[in-house]
Amino acid sequence: MNKSLLSLEDVHTHVEGFHILQGVSFEVPENQVAVLLGRNGAGKSTTLRTIMGLWAATAGSIVFRDQSLRGVSTAQIARAGIAYVPENMGIFSGLTVRQNLLLATRTGRFDTNRLDWLFSIFPPLHKYWNFPAGKLSGGQKQMVSIGRAMVENRSLILVDEPTKGIAPLLVESLFDAFVRLKQMNTTLLLVEQNLSFASELGDSVVVMDEGRVVHTGSMEAFARDTDMQSRYLGLSFAAPKSPAETEHLP
């Protein structure tokens, strides 16, 4: 097991009076892809927002590289080396693709080698470089959003449902991007509903339900265990049953 880069211990988060996270504990090992799974409303996005400091944890500890993130501002958390790709992508629509990416650099300058590498993964970023990001398609916007997290080296990238509503062809391109990041030993914490995407990419899995962690372990073992999948997620990686089989189900 790799050394843990991020660890959450008994984290509670209240949002507008609702007790959303009710004692979340898990670890994200360094240089690996951890996948956060769970039904809708399980608290996955809230967990990412709490790590980023966008919602304050009301109890528990969040430690990133031996540094506590509780009570630390979002800007400082980002500067500590954590990038965040929100579910809504957080694109600045009125700004061009170039300007969106420029704001993700620390110095206000691009590393041209890194940029070429990024263009090789996401060619549309190059094609639409001076185009307002708001006019791009959903998949292209996602590329801008993930590209912002990749334009410079970050220790940990939090990604919230990158494949949601994205055309299958573009999903492949996103998959390729995450594989490349993985090859560069970037640690990823991924919230993902697309199970095949998650199982191919993930090293470890954290399953959440009703604001709590109900299972942690290796993705490989979880992908094999269809019982656990249906118990925690209500579905499984296995191929759908044929109509003849489903007829007789209670």
Partner: peptide, 21 residues
């Protein structure tokens, strides 16, 4: 850069913070 940040902040202030500003 400051101007871009102001424009970006008008659209999505959370994302501007998440980028470290």
């Amino acid at each position: 850069r400051l101007g871009l940040l102001v424009r970006a902040g008008v659209e999505d202030s959370e994302m501007v913070q998440s980028l470290g500003f």
